[in-house]
């Protein structure tokens, strides 16, 4: 019986495939529906924050920073409440990371401010002496790609029914408006101006006023929203 399998490469391959596919099938498939339900209060990313999230991904911040607070006292003391599955419902991709060369960022919005971030990204050692994080100065001049962010928001709205332009919590108001690109951009600029002013950096304010959002402003919007 078994000698036969080893002389028939096709059936051998089928056998190997069944054995290795089995684990994935049992492990992953049945939990899909449950794990992707958002917890109350979780909302999709606004256009500006989504653009910031794309900057976070583009420069692989997740290579050194996690976004997953484990249920230990030492972690909740340091970073805040432990993470819940439903909080990640609109995270595509997930950004848990696998290595904390720097601290966890899942609730960084609770304890850092816009100007702290701006100073930190310009020169990390100026606010954290001894930091080994490099400066990300190109984010202060690069313009955030709102079109791609809008394309992503529209895609997840269309394909995965992410509730943009909907009343999620039932208070009769639209929670996260998206609308057309022009509408979304207008709103992103308004949010960006507020953050740019908070950073107390003239160059950033000027850029936003001229209709261009620097990547750093989008990134800060994203980080401030991590709560």
């Amino acid at each position: 019986m078994f000698g036969w399998l080893e002389r028939n490469p096709f059936f051998f391959a089928v056998g190997v495939f069944i054995v290795i596919a089995f684990a994935g099938l049992i492990e992953i498939v049945p939990d899909f529906a449950q794990a992707s339900r958002p917890v109350a209060g979780t909302k999709p990313y606004s256009l500006l924050r989504l653009a910031g999230r794309q900057v976070y991904i583009k420069d692989s911040c997740n290579a050194c920073h996690s976004q997953l607070i484990r249920p230990f006292k030492s972690e909740t003391d340091r970073y805040g409440n432990y993470s819940l599955s439903g909080e990640y419902a609109y995270d595509r991709p997930f950004l848990w990371g696998s290595k904390r060369t720097g601290p966890d960022l899942h609730r960084v919005g609770n304890y850092r401010t816009s100007d702290w971030h701006a100073n930190h990204m310009w020169d990390p050692t100026s606010v954290v002496p001894g930091s080994i994080m490099p400066a990300y100065k190109h984010m202060f001049t690069n313009v955030a790609d709102l079109e791609t962010a809008y394309a992503e928001a529209l895609t997840v709205k269309k394909v995965f029914n992410v509730p943009y332009d909907k009343d999620i919590d039932g208070d009769g108001k639209v929670d996260v408006p998206l609308g057309s690109f022009e509408q979304a951009k207008k709103q992103a600029l308004a949010e960006a101006l507020k953050i740019a002013k908070e950073t107390k950096r003239e160059d950033l304010v000027k850029m936003v006023e001229s209709g261009k959002i620097p990547e750093i402003v989008a990134l800060i919007a994203y980080l401030n929203g991590l709560k």
Binding site: E27, I28, D31, F32, A35, S36, S85, G86, E87, Y88, A89, Y90, D91, R92, P93, F94, W96, E152, T155, V156, F160
Partner: peptide, 12 residues
């Protein structure tokens, strides 16, 4: 954009 979200994405 990933087909999976959050914990599912992590699992996969």
């Amino acid at each position: 954009v990933s087909m999976y979200s959050g914990s599912n994405d992590a699992l996969v």
